[in-house]
């Protein structure tokens, strides 16, 4: 059990190191001089040179990477070139929007996807099943940011029930903040719910077909009991996998949805930093996204190891 875990953790560290170097390299050779962007078109060459040296842009690349990495490891994420505030502050503020948004989206997709999948499996071949199948096909095919636009059009612009965007901040209270996140998280959740419904249905049907369930049925368990006692719990394993694999898409989707709804999250932060050539912010946000994706994937791997004994030796 220990060896495969250690191997994966070592792989994780090496991958993260490689990614940090790649991110740093790509971001550092950006054409477009942050100094020129800040000082505008009237800046004189000596002014630009002064700012570049102030920002440390005149030092050699490997030195800058080493300094950056040391900073990261000691918890110093650097200072935003444009805002002049610590990157950590910006990232934390962004995460306070993006993480709740992602969590709400996962919750909604579970609340919607699981029951739909189980219902479709329980009444296989019925109109319910066909309806779920249609929902799944449509949901998977629809871009989440377009769903966001439609939600704004209907519930904000036409009916006026919901704010059309923006974020009041958590200090305004939980209720207004959660309200502001509701439509964005629904937009993010619908395609995920469609995927989950599909996976849950298939997994449930597969378990229902397995020997131990048939034995239980033969011993007098009703179809309904078999469904809830055996099929659904056992179908959760593939569902967990899917949530893990979908995480990457959720993060990418958050960038889009935050832009649609004007939420000051990590995705918007990254887009703004890109436009302003705020390299220090870009590096940290990109690295953070990539790290999250990798860590979640490794966690899913490990969860699989823990839950499925067959894999322990095979690994």
């Amino acid at each position: 059990m220990l060896r495969p875990v250690l191997t994966r953790l070592l792989g994780l560290v090496l991958t993260l190191l490689a990614i940090s170097a790649a991110v740093f390299l790509v971001m550092s050779v950006l054409p477009g001089d942050p100094a020129a962007i800040m000082l505008g078109t009237s800046a004189r060459p000596d002014t630009l040179a002064a700012l570049r040296s102030e920002l440390g842009l005149d030092r050699p690349l490997p030195l800058r990477y080493a300094a950056w990495l040391t900073g990261l490891l000691t918890g110093d994420l650097g200072r935003s070139v444009t805002y002049g505030v610590p990157v950590a502050k910006l990232v934390l503020a962004g995460a306070a929007v993006t993480l709740p948004l992602a969590a709400m989206a996962i919750l909604i997709s579970l609340l919607l996807g699981l029951p739909l999948g189980v219902a479709a499996a329980a009444r296989r071949g019925s109109a319910v099943d066909a309806g779920v199948s249609l929902f799944a096909q449509l949901g998977i095919a629809t871009p989440n940011f377009w769903i966001g636009l439609l939600l704004i059009l209907v519930f904000a612009a036409t009916l006026g029930w919901m704010p059309s965007g923006g974020f009041p901040g958590w200090q305004a209270g939980a209720a207004p903040a959660l309200t502001a996140l509701l439509m964005p998280s629904i937009a993010l959740a619908l395609p995920q719910a469609a995927v989950l419904a599909r996976v849950t249905r298939t997994a449930t049907l597969e378990v229902l077909g397995e020997d131990f369930v048939r034995t239980a049925r033969a011993k007098g368990l009703s179809r309904r009991q078999a469904l809830w006692r055996h099929a659904v719990p056992n179908a959760l394993l593939p569902v967990i996998t899917i949530i893990g694999l979908q995480f990457t898409f959720l993060v990418a989707g958050a960038v889009l949805v935050e832009n649609v709804f004007g939420l000051p999250g990590l995705g918007r932060l990254a887009m703004q930093a890109l436009a302003q050539r705020d390299v220090t912010v870009m590096q940290v946000v990109v690295l953070l996204f990539a790290t999250l994706a990798i860590v979640v994937n490794v966690l899913v791997d490990l969860a699989y190891l823990a839950l499925d004994p067959r894999l322990r030796n095979a690994a």
Binding site: M38, L39, G40, T41, S42, L51, T82, G84, D278
Partner: peptide
């Protein structure tokens, strides 16, 4: 458009 920093003596926007 949000200001990038709040010191008009060091940046143009």
């Amino acid at each position: 458009i949000e200001p990038t920093g709040l010191d008009p003596t060091v940046a143009a926007p």
